[in-house]
Design a protein around this nucleic acid. Sequence first.
DNA 1: CATAAATTATGTTCTTAAACATAAATTTCC
DNA 2: GGAAATTTATGTTTAAGAACATAATTTATG
Lengths: 234, 234
Amino acid sequence: MYIRQQNSITPEVVHALSPLLDLLPMEERRMLERSAEVVEYKRHEPIYNEGESPNHLYVVLDGAVKVYRQGVCGRCQIMRMLGAGSFFGYRASLAHEPYVTGATAFGPATICCVPMNLIHQVMAKCPSVMKFFVEELAKDLGVSDKRMVSLTQKHVRGRIAESLLTMREVFGLDTEGFIDLDLTRQELADYSNMTTSNAIRTISALVSENVISVKDKRIKLLEDELLLRISLMG
Amino acid sequence: MYIRQQNSITPEVVHALSPLLDLLPMEERRMLERSAEVVEYKRHEPIYNEGESPNHLYVVLDGAVKVYRQGVCGRCQIMRMLGAGSFFGYRASLAHEPYVTGATAFGPATICCVPMNLIHQVMAKCPSVMKFFVEELAKDLGVSDKRMVSLTQKHVRGRIAESLLTMREVFGLDTEGFIDLDLTRQELADYSNMTTSNAIRTISALVSENVISVKDKRIKLLEDELLLRISLMG
DNA sequence: CATAAATTATGTTCTTAAACATAAATTTCC
DNA sequence: GGAAATTTATGTTTAAGAACATAATTTATG
């Protein structure tokens, strides 16, 4: 973790924060811009940990982030994957409770941090900011409800298919048409609630069936509708 | 479903709505009280359905409510159980999307309904009301994150134990010390992500081990710490 | 009240996915 | 550069829980 010392507020930062900044009157806007920090995280570096007390709102500027929870016997469940532009880490603070999840950089990532006490402050002043968080939380809860049923009811194949479609949605494609994210089979397993072997096997099978293709740590989706069908069937 | 025609706003209604009403200036308070309706639902009667567009905020006045989602092949997953005083049905409206869940009365239930457009209106006027929903949503999302891992990682026994402890938390005890809720094994199964047979078998086992006892459709928890240990172990 | 439907109970079989094992290939890092 | 660790790959065994079957009991309903 390396905190950029100066010139934190580049145009990119302003752009990433714009969903919030655009809602603020000039004074608050300046305040928020001044206290925003940009931090570089290395691959697998934790951003915050389960049980800690939440002090920051985070925004992904570049790279990818996973939010996960340690379950039975330390088994990791990746709850969400976040790409550039995503806000995270604020829920626990808004609920006035410690983090129930941890967050880690997938690969090298650039993250913008804003102190939560400042967020609480501007929320109190600007109803539109509060509304922003109401909508974020309400949407996330809907996604969570759907995901709960997917993870508990779908079979391994269906869960992998759903994960792949979600990942493409979140991270988009690179220049060669692969999902723009490097992840290991283990991480795919942790996201899809299965063992690493099952993730490996299922990916291998889908490759040999020409439903997807793999190159290095990247995956390309070849048969969209088929994947969707696999995902829906369970 | 029977809408109480007059004298809707009894002291009980005011009390149930007080977490909201107490945040309002007199004018808005009167407005909300005037448009609140009290509805009686019969056992298993739907309150709202998956896919519908959300128009009301609901508050449980008396009885119990289940919020569920149809999954693969129509299999039902009960997402939440709600007792007296709980607010529900507002999330989808706040996210500007159709319901992803449905809600049904467990037994005969008295529910207070408030039009969501009115809620949006008072939210715009009273930041404290918005804050109320921010906190509700943020807490629910934390609960949801924890539950996700429980449902996916714990074994049948652990899931039943957790369900029982949660149900006691939510519904409390009747005069004889039983959890104050009548539910079928099927509903317990739908809540705990398992087949009905497995719920029946597990409950039978726990009864014969004197960890719980059963009378009619009610359950009493006899060995708290043991249940907690079973729940945590998975 | 009587019949139908739902619920509880329990036994048996079968399938999915976990657990375990081993090895090759790749990556990390001193 | 080379040892250690991680990741990918694949085969085998095992166990948890679903699926199926049957029946007794309770509850709902015309």
